[in-house]
Simulated scan of single mutants.
Amino acid sequence: MSLSITRHLDTGAEPNTILQVLTPEGTRHPDPVLDPHLGDVDDEKLRGLYRDMVVLRRIDREGVALQRQGQLGLWAPCEGQEATQIGTGRALAAKDYVFPSYRETGLVYVRGAQPGDYVRMWRGEEGAAFDPAALSMAPLQIIIGAQTLHAVGYAMGIKHERADEVAVTYFGDGATSQGDVNEALIFASAFQLPVVFVCQNNHWAISEPVTVQSRFPLAGRAPGFGIPSLRFDGNDVLASLAAMRWALEHARTGQGPVFLEAVTYRMGPHTTADDPKRYRDADELELWRQRDPLTRVEAYLAAKNALTDEHRAAIQKEADDMARSMREACLSMVTREPLAVFDNVYSAPHPGLEAQRTAFADYLASFEEA
C-alpha cells in the first residue's frame, strides 16, 4: 500500500498491523501506542469490563431465545463482538453522542438502557427502542451506513457551537462499500469535524466475506480521505478501550475525525433470519472461538488471582438478573391494535390515509371470515 497510516500516526505501525495488548491466551504485553491510554486500568476496572461483557453476552443470548420463542420479530446477535462494544463504549463521555447501526447492543447497555429498551424495537412495539435524549444515542439504524451521515451532521453542529463533545458512529465492514460511508468520510475530513468512525470488521457482510469487500485492511482507506486511522484487535477489550480513548482525545482537541478498525468476528448469524452454515466454514468459526474476548480477560485475571469464585458468582447473578428483567419487560408489553398504526400520522384528517385504514381493516377482517 503506497499510503501508510504512519503518515498520520507516528506509531511505526504499518496499515496491516493489528495492535493488541491482551492475547487470546490472556497474556498482557506492552504496546507503545495503546499503553499510554491504559494507565488507570487496575484489576477492579478490568473486572468491571469483564462483568460488562458477561452481562452483554447474556442479554444477547436472551434476545435470541426470545426471538426463537416468537416474542421478537428479529434479533441481530453481537456475540463475539463484546470487547469492541464494551471497550470503546466505556471510553465515551456522557456528553458524547452515539450513532449506532442495528448490532450495537453493547452500546445500548453501556449508555444506561432499561431492560425493555433492548427488545421494544425488535418486538415491533410503538416508539423507538429507547429514549435517545436519555442515552445520548440515536435510534438503531437499519439502513446500512446511513448513521455515518447523521453523525457527521451532528459533528458539524458541535463544531459550530464549539462544544466539548464528540460524535461517534458504528458500522460494519460491509458498510464501507456504501456511498453514505464514503460521503461521510469526505465531509468529515473536509470540515475537520469531531467525529470518530468505528468500523467493526466482523469479517462477514451477511454472506459476503471481507476479503471480497476489500483486498487491503479497511483502516488503510481512511488516510486517502485525510483521516488518521488505527487498526486493533477488536476481541481485546483493553485495546478497544485504549484505541477509543486515543481517538476521542484527537477529535475532542480539534484535530478532526478519526477512523478505527476493530478486527473482530461475528460468532452467530447476521440476524436470527440468517443461517451462517450455508456460507461459513466450521473451521473458521472454531478458530475464532479460540480468540473469545471473554475468556482472555478471565484467564488474565485468574492468573493474577484477581477473579475469585465470589466475583464469578456475583457477575453471573447480575447477568441472569438482567436477562430476567429483559424477558419480563418483553412479555409485559402491551401491543396496540393493528389499526392504531394510522393514528397521529397527520394532524388533520387525510382522505388517502383513511382509504388505507379502510383497506387494511378489510384485510384484517378477511382472516376472521376465513
Rank of each mutant, 00 (worst) to 15 (best):
D362C: 00
I227K: 10
A146N: 13
C330I: 00
T264I: 13
G116S: 03
L149I: 10
L230D: 09
H203C: 07
E161W: 03
G174Q: 07
E328I: 00
A94H: 10
P293G: 07
P77A: 09
V54D: 02
S240Q: 06
L34T: 07
T11R: 01
L46K: 04
A273K: 08
W288R: 08
T308S: 15
S177E: 14
N16I: 02
K159E: 08
R327P: 03
R58V: 04
M53A: 05
V21H: 00
G234N: 10
Q200V: 14
A359W: 05
G112R: 09
G70F: 01
T84C: 15
T358M: 00
L34W: 14
G127V: 02
L193Q: 03
P194C: 04
D275P: 01
T88I: 08
V341R: 02
E62P: 11
D274V: 04
G80Y: 11
T253E: 10
V41W: 08
R280Y: 03
A306K: 01
T6D: 15
R215K: 13
G157R: 09
P269F: 13
M244D: 08
E14Q: 12
D292H: 08
M244R: 10
A239T: 12
T84H: 07
Y50S: 03
V237L: 10
V345G: 05
Y170A: 05
R68L: 09
G116Y: 03
N305L: 07
G352F: 01
N201V: 05
R123M: 15
S4V: 07
F187Q: 05
V212E: 13
D309Q: 09
F360D: 10
S207Q: 03
A247Y: 10
A262H: 01
L19M: 13
A247S: 12
R291H: 15
A219W: 02
T253P: 05
A355E: 11
E318S: 14
E104Q: 03
A303R: 14
G172C: 10
R68D: 07
